[in-house]
Structures are given as C-alpha cells and as structure tokens.
Design a protein around this nucleic acid. Structure first.
Lengths: 244, 244
DNA sequence: TCAATTTTTGACGACTCGTCAATAATGCAG
DNA sequence: CTGCATTATTGACGAGTCGTCAAAAATTGA
C-alpha cells in the first residue's frame, strides 16, 4: 500500500497526535474532569469544531489514549512470548513485560480505570471499543497459549474443571488489581505495604507454585532468567527505564 | 448518650437516607455522568440548596455510598474472623465474606472504581476520605492478623523479606482486580472466562497453597468448612442471597 | 403574639459539551 | 490566472452542569 499523503493529510495526522499529547497531559493533571475540549482547542490554537473533526467526543480521546498504550502492551507481550525457554520461563517474560509496561506508563492504569468506570465506556465509539477488546483478547490468548504449552510439556497439570483462561483470569486480576491500587492509593506505605511491585511479583510466583508449575521457584533460579529476558528481549526498554 | 432527636432532626436524617437512595439508583443507571444534583432535587421535590445542606458536592454523595457498603464489608470481615478454627480456615471465612459482600452489592465495585478514578477523590471531603481509609486499614489489619496467627501456630512460614501485609496485598489485588473486571467487563464469556467468581476462588486457593499454608487444599475438605461458615456465621445473609 | 433563628428556595454566574450555519481556504478546470 | 466547487475551520449557540447566596418561608421560644 504505497499511499502518498497530501500535505493536508499529513498536517491532519500530525494535529491528531498533538491533540492526544495535550489531552494526556490534561488528563494526568486533573483527571477526567480536568480534560476539557475547550481547553484543548485553546491550547492548540484551533477552534473546538476542529477538535471534533478528529474525535466524536471527549470520551473517545480518552479511549484513544488507552488504546495507544494497550497496543504497546500487546507488542510487549508478543515479544515476551518469543523468549526461548520452558513455558514457565516464558511466563516470567510476560511478567517482566507487564512490569516494564507499567513502569514506562505509570499513568496508564489511572486512565484505564477512568474508561472502565463512570459511564465513560458507554459514550465511546464502536471502533475504539473494538480495538480495546481485541488487544485484551490477544493478550489473554498469548498467556493462555503459554499455559497450554506448559500442560503439553508436562510441566503443569490443571484440574479438569479449570480452563487455562480461568488461570489467566487470576493473573490478570492480580496484576490489574495491584497496579490499579498502586496507581490510585496515596497511602500504601501507611498500611504497611512498602514495596507493592515486589509484593505482586512474589504473589504471582506463589500462584504458579500453587499450581505446581515446574520448575518451582525453589527449584530454579528465575532471577537469572529475568536478567536474560531483560537483555535478550527488552534491552532498549530496560535501558530507557534506567536512564529515565 | 441518650440523645433525643427533635422531629426536625429526624426528618433531616431521613431525608439524607432518601437522597442516598435516589443517588444510588441514578448512579447505577447512568454512572458518574448520570448522577445530577438538579435531578436528585427534582426527584425528591426539594430545591437544590437543600441537597447541598447534606452534601458539599456530588462527589461526597458518591463517597458516602461507597462508605456505607465499605462499612458493611468491614463488619463481614470482623465476623468472619471470629470463626473458630485453624487460621487458614478463618481466612476461608474471610473469602466467603468477601464473595457474599460482592454478591449482595453487585454494583459496589463499579462505584468504588468511580471514586478511585477520574479525579473524584480529590474533590471529596476530608471526613469521607478518612472513613474510607479507616475501613480499608481495618480490613487489612484483620487479614494480616490471621496471617500472623498462622505463622505463630506454625502452619505457615513467610520468607524474611515478606511482611504479612505484602501477602495481604496480593489477596487484595486479586479480589479487587477480579471483582472490578467482572463488574466492568461485558464480555468475559467471549474470551473464555465462564465462571469468573469460581476462578477467583480457585486462584486464591493456589496462592495460599503456594505459600505452603497448612492444611493445603489437598489435605483438607475446605468445602465442608465453607458450609459450616455459611451456617454458623452468615446464616441470614446466605439465605437472603438465595431467596433474592 | 411576635421577634430571632433556622431552613428552604431558585435565580444566578461560570463552566461544560457538542452542533451547525456561515466563513475561509483549498483544489481544480478552463 | 480566474472563477467555481469542494473541503476545512470557525465560534456563537442551545442545553445542561455544578455550586452559591440573598431573599423568602418556616420554626422556635420568650
């Protein structure tokens, strides 16, 4: 597809990006209520009507922001799944990807929570919703695929009544819940939770051990594996994180 | 404290309740955006000013709703913790309380998510926030207490670097995340998650097994324990659930 | 009974969002 | 280059929102 864009089209694309950039800033600053179409227009020195040419409503802008990040997470997951190793090691790579993602997008879970809550979802366009759903189910598919590999290789046995997807749901719930709480709670320290990220990792390890997924954490040096994952799969991102 | 309320004071208290009732309805109907102070006033046939005599802002009404439920959950947890049995059985009682609560308040996690997201929190009054925080930390305290009992009785060993609170955080993340996803996702079935509640229970069991908390799920008939919990601690609520 | 106090009211200002006729810019054909 | 057709941009507008506050009504108590 060798489409050559006209100058106008390029301008429009660029403007779309600028809208999202300033919108993200406003959202971080003042949450859902801090994001205002008028203020976006003023900030970019366009009229409101022009902004509405790009997005049908405020909520669609927010969803676009979520989807931008969501897509990056999907990519992270896909790359993580290519790690060469036993299934549980590959799942560790997913875990690494997950944490990397949340550290690179510290605000993401705030925004996802906005979309999920408060009747925002209902106002978004079908298109945006479809993108979000497809990202979600791709991520689920990647993880459940690894679980199936684990079963196939004999490292893991699931009870009959439990589908791999049910196991994914547990991991999903723990990470989504954990990161959301971290993003929205001001005072975890006060209730005795000093290192929430580390706590999530620990607890996820326990889930997998609880399923008896070999090799267990006690049988294998997973921290060494994580070092390899960081180097082999996420070299650039890891560096970006350490320097930023 | 033998305070006798005047007729007026009783009226006011009653009105407060009615405000919350109609607000809850609106919130369920149309989310954050569906809740309007003008409409509350119209619905109750008072003027807006009178509503503002009860709550300083829209957000405080929402927080009051959350706190109402939150307090009930605290009570559930406290009652659950009184179950006579080994620590892990008492934790199972907490799990039962948790599920009972979410089933009795199917909308609660929607509302909690609204409060956590979208800059609502910042607008709430100090008073309401304090109540919510105190409920939260009471719940955490109850669970971490049970964990400490488990350690004390030799049923459970925690790694040195892990505080009981970190373990609580894992359970909290899984339940909060799971219930929130359930409350806000329309299409779990489509991605292969058929019985999300059951899946959460299963996964929590795995976490505890992963910590090696005796007796393990395989060594003990916890479903029989749950029957006892339902009968001995939550007889009324369980019935209400089955008939409602 | 009547003045002091409390409660209630709803018009008001300041902001939103999203629309849409009118205006400006651009593309294109002759 | 000119003049028409198409596309893009504008911002005033309607409909709602929240929260305030002087004025009106109700209640209290002496």
């Amino acid at each position: 597809m060798m489409t050559v864009l006209t100058r106008k089209q390029r301008e429009i694309q660029e403007r779309q990006q600028r809208i999202l950039t300033v919108a993200r800033e406003m959202l971080m600053q003042g949450g859902y209520l801090g994001l205002s179409m008028d203020r976006i227009a003023t900030a970019l020195e366009y009229s409101k009507g022009t902004i509405y040419q790009h997005f049908a409503c405020k909520e669609d802008i927010i969803l676009a922001l979520v989807n931008d990040s969501q897509q990056q997470r999907c990519d992270f997951f896909e790359r993580a799944a290519t790690f060469r190793g036993r299934p549980r090691e590959r799942l560790a790579a997913i875990g690494y990807a997950s944490e990397l993602f949340v550290r690179l997008h510290p605000d993401y879970f705030n925004v996802e929570q906005i979309v999920r809550a408060s009747s925002i979802w209902e106002k978004t366009s079908l298109n945006g919703r479809t993108i979000m759903r497809s990202c979600e189910s791709r991520c689920i598919g990647i993880v459940s695929g690894i679980i199936r590999d684990g079963v196939a290789q004999g490292d893991l046995t699931l009870p009959e009544e439990l589908a791999p997807e049910d196991m994914v749901f547990g991991l999903w719930a723990m990470t989504f819940g954990g990161y959301s709480i971290i993003a929205t709670s001001s005072s975890l320290e006060e209730v005795g939770i000093r290192e929430p990220f580390e706590a999530i990792n620990q607890n996820i390890t326990r889930v997998l051990d609880g399923y008896g997924w070999r090799p267990l954490a006690s049988e294998h040096d997973y921290s060494a594996v994580l070092v390899r994952i960081a180097e082999e799969i996420f070299r650039d991102e890891t560096e970006r994180l350490q320097s930023g």
